[in-house]
Design a protein around this nucleic acid. Structure first.
Length: 99
DNA sequence: AGACTGACATACC
DNA sequence: CGGTATGCCAGTC
């Protein structure tokens, strides 16, 4: 059962437009806790709303994916396939640029 | 209740 | 520039 905090996180992530990517900091800011990026990651890690919340659109500020439950690399491909057709969205994996 | 963990960020060496 | 170290927040053991 997700807590209020997590609910806010999911809500914020769901707001991310398709084909766009946001940083954890961005999400944290949306929920009103810019420094709770870790907690955000924790919430997304459980991600009970897997298909509802596009967690793969949430990346690090550096542009790196960071890590995902199903594998960062796979998530990047999925991300590229889903929306980030152009390289406009900084799509990196562990500091490595995909596009 | 206390300690550890985790998908981060920033600072310092 | 790259790796190491510390701080942060919420959740879970």
């Amino acid at each position: 059962m997700p807590t209020k905090f997590e609910e806010k996180v999911y809500k914020a992530v769901k707001k991310i437009p398709k084909g766009e990517v946001r940083s954890y900091e961005w999400v944290a800011k949306q929920i009103g806790r810019p420094k709770s990026v870790r907690a955000v990651g924790n919430a997304l890690n459980k991600n009970p709303y897997a298909p509802i919340v596009p967690c793969h659109r949430v990346i690090r500020k550096d542009g790196s994916i960071g890590g995902f439950a199903s594998g960062a690399g796979k998530k990047v491909e999925l991300l590229k396939r889903e929306g980030a057709e152009h390289c406009s969205a900084r799509t990196y994996v562990n500091k490595e640029k995909i596009c």
